[in-house]
Design a protein around this nucleic acid. Structure first.
Ligand SMILES: [Mn+2]
Ligand SMILES: [Mn+2]
Ligand SMILES: [Zn+2]
Ligand SMILES: [Zn+2]
Lengths: 143, 143
DNA sequence: TTCTAATTTGTTATTATTACAATTTAGTAT
DNA sequence: ATACTAAATTGTAATAATAACAAATTAGAA
């Protein structure tokens, strides 16, 4: 059940705790780029003793070990994403959804630019998602 | 002196106020991607009656008119940049500097992706800037 | 010059995140 | 299996960025 996540933590010499396993599992099963509050309140349901501080701390150590990445796309809070394959992100300004974007990008895997040492690359697109556009059209017809 | 900025506001039918002119001028003369606090405290020196709320409000209306853009690269606060020519950004994790990056990017001017309507595109690179790397080397030799 | 809607200002409220100290626990050594 | 200890978890308090709000001021039209 949790073996997969236990191994990930072991591989990085991170102490194994139920809280870390749950957070990692949550991110692995929800590719919706949740914020701290979402992760916390979801997991709190099954593990009432969980503390918000632990969510912050756990995400921090997972990030340092490059097991997860944080996205600053929303501008008001960090969003978290399990690290698997580089990809870009799209934020819908209407519904707030953050979607994975798979497009070829020559700069994605760049490790150096103009003498700067590059450790992270993020491509953010913002606008109105396909789904919200459909809703807009519908409203126009009816109103 | 302020003619350039007066015209920009006029072109967008934005009411001309000294506060807006000062903020616009500041961004035009400082391409350092300042945050609200920096803009506020700098301008406050010469215009002691300036309110922080006005800085927030002014930047908001300038942004809506696409005269400036806000960057979420830092993750903790918005950074502002006058809109001229699409370009990417690099954040130094050590000194906090945000630098313009001019690289060819096929996705910069994208307006549609997978059915989503794209209104903003931002490319963020994070790492250690050239300058901070030099300092690191120096410290190694001396200590 | 007068008028009014829009803007500015100062204050208060909200929200995300960090700091901190007491309690608990994972993993090691016995 | 037990005891130990450094590290992790918890709950609370502090900080910082931003938003909400209402009173005072002002840009620009009449
Ligand atoms: Mn993603
Ligand atoms: Mn820039
Ligand atoms: Zn949407
Ligand atoms: Zn630097």
């Amino acid at each position: 059940m949790y073996e997969k996540y236990v191994n990930i933590l072991k591989d990085h010499s991170i102490k194994i705790t139920s809280q870390r396993l749950e957070i990692l599992k949550y991110l692995d099963e929800h590719h919706t780029h949740p914020n701290v509050e979402e992760i916390y309140s979801e997991l709190k349901k099954k593990h009432p003793s969980l503390s918000r501080t632990t969510v912050y701390n756990s995400l921090e150590i997972l990030k340092k070990n490059r097991i997860v990445q944080s996205l600053t796309i929303s501008g008001s809070e960090l969003r978290y994403d399990i690290e698997e394959g580089l990809h870009h992100h799209f934020l819908c300004k209407k519904c707030g959804a953050i979607l994975d974007i798979s497009i070829a990008c020559p700069n994605m895997d760049r490790t150096l630019d103009g003498g700067h040492r590059v450790e992270e690359v993020q491509g953010y697109f913002k606008g109105i998602c396909k789904n919200c556009q459909t809703k807009e059209k519908g409203r126009r017809i009816n109103g």
